[in-house]
Write a protein that binds this DNA or RNA. Structure first.
Lengths: 222, 222
DNA sequence: CTTGAGAGAATTCTCGAGAAAATATAGTTG
DNA sequence: CAACTATATTTTCTCGAGAATTCTCTCAAG
């Protein structure tokens, strides 16, 4: 029971980050300290500290003497995020498959199982838990790369994934059976320890998902 | 002269970051707020804000309710940093070479020239400006990937490079003619727009440099 | 000699107030 | 009417103080 210590700071940090990722604070919004103070019930110093953190992670844009903004979204940014995710996650999945032990396999099986259950629900028309589904999706992808033996890589990937997630939340589209099959195929490739195949499937999976998102958020570009 | 960065906060941020990278704040050191307050002449709130930022970049380790520490160094961490740098920089150099325009070439030529001059000085025995030399080295590597068309990638790379730089500063060894030749070869490959060759040379260059460092900081591996 | 409890000291965490800077408003001039 | 200047308002930036938590040292018990 690794209970999270509830300091005011880390609590508001998590809430602001969540609100940005899940679109409750819209891209480009000016974050006036006085407003946040009432909304999150924290002091200026504490808020600044957390906004600085979010700024260096890239969720908030900080302009000297001019305040904080929710980082804007753009077509180019989504493309960059996607390419980075492909680069990092493919590299990590290779390492992970080559080094993963029994524990890793166990966690992967569990993660895929949970995701698969949720996907079945979605296919049957129950779309009430999209946020939970997306969480299981993220946990599955994390489980795939967990054994890559690089804390640094996992940290960077986590941030990139959250940025990707924000774009997903702007549309929250469900690709249905197609995505389900892709997850299953990646899962099988990982258990079969076929790193090369897993990498190829993963890249296709990521890029296909983003294609949908791109089309919906930034349609029709020259 | 777009140089208006004179808030107390960003100033101390830069100084602390510099002191960590250049070893003036040793790895593992406890960063007591009261001590930093006198050393950097800033208030607690301001210091916390900047330490939080450095923590999310990975230069400082922050433990809830227990304060801040300079991130420790380790053999494993250096290996992770190196692998990430190879992954990111090789990917970026490919994009850069394939997309770079005339401006990019110009800046690259300039950066290599400055680096080369400094390398000649070093070869002639003038070792008084190692810090400047390392800066030109960094600027050359940055110039190589500058045209990769991904702000996100460049940002992450900059942080990873600074982490690598900290390990370099712990030993500050000079590989001499060997490294000079490698820089020249990469430079030529870039101008010839041979992305594949540049990637190979870059990976070898990075790994060779780190081999030296690893041996010096963490000698004797099982 | 080791272990554990408790008081005291040190340190972190949180807050509101005043100084500095940026933005908005009003007034003047060509 | 446009453009520039001076003033007023808003917002950010910086600071020290008090509350909450952790650490340290002493002392007693097994």
């Amino acid at each position: 029971m690794n209970k999270h210590i509830n300091t005011v700071g880390s609590n508001t940090y998590q809430r602001i980050k969540h609100d940005i990722i899940y679109g409750e604070l819209e891209p480009g919004t000016k974050l006036k300290l006085d407003g946040l103070k009432t909304r999150y019930a924290a002091s200026l110093s504490t808020l600044r500290e957390m906004l600085s953190r979010l700024a260096s992670e890239g969720f908030v844009a900080a302009e000297e003497q001019r305040g904080f903004f929710v980082t804007p979204v753009s077509r180019e940014d989504l493309i960059e995020i996607t390419n980075l995710r492909v680069l990092l996650e493919c590299s990590a999945v290779k390492e992970s498959i080559e080094n993963g032990d029994t524990d890793w396999e166990g966690n992967l099986v569990a993660a895929h199982h949970k995701l698969h259950l949720m996907e079945q629900k979605m296919l049957n028309g129950d779309e009430t838990q999209k946020e939970t589904w997306k969480r299981y999706d993220g946990e599955f992808h994390l489980a795939m790369i967990q054994a890559c033996n690089s804390k640094n890589l996992l940290d960077i990937h986590a941030t990139i994934y959250d940025k990707y997630l924000r774009y997903q939340m702007l549309v929250l589209t469900y690709r249905g059976q197609e995505a389900v099959d892709e997850h299953k195929a990646m899962f099988d490739a990982a258990l079969a320890r076929d790193a090369k195949l897993a990498q190829e499937l993963l890249e296709k999976h990521i890029r296909k998902g983003v294609e949908h998102t791109l089309e919906k958020i930034f349609p029709k570009d020259a």
